[in-house]
Amino acid sequence: MSLHIVSKSPFSSTALSDCLDAFAEGDALLLIEDGVYALSGRMSERPAVQPVYCLAADAAARGLQIPDSVTAVDDAGWVALCAEHNPVVSWFK
């Protein structure tokens, strides 16, 4: 099952919506870099998919709170998610 990593803001890029179109049952979504801005928009209350993870450091750097529906991960957790899923797909356009 795939891990989708979104690194661009949904307010400036279609990366998140493109990713959600390709999201399959059993996949996981990880928000990093400006991708964490999704937490202030469509992911803030009821995420479109599950499970959703977020790099805690990138959210903290942008002053964003991580809602209960999203799991915060540190760098070790990021590596673990990549090890648990195959392939790892990065969305940055």
């Binding site: 690194s7 870099e33 990138d58 760098d75 070790a76």
Partner: peptide, 19 residues
């Protein structure tokens, strides 16, 4: 962008985790 810095950060993390 942050991507190059993220790559270095991820490389450090995966080596630290024993991969």
């Amino acid at each position: 962008s942050q991507a190059a810095a993220s790559a270095l950060r991820f490389a450090r993390a995966l080596l630290r985790e024993g991969h």
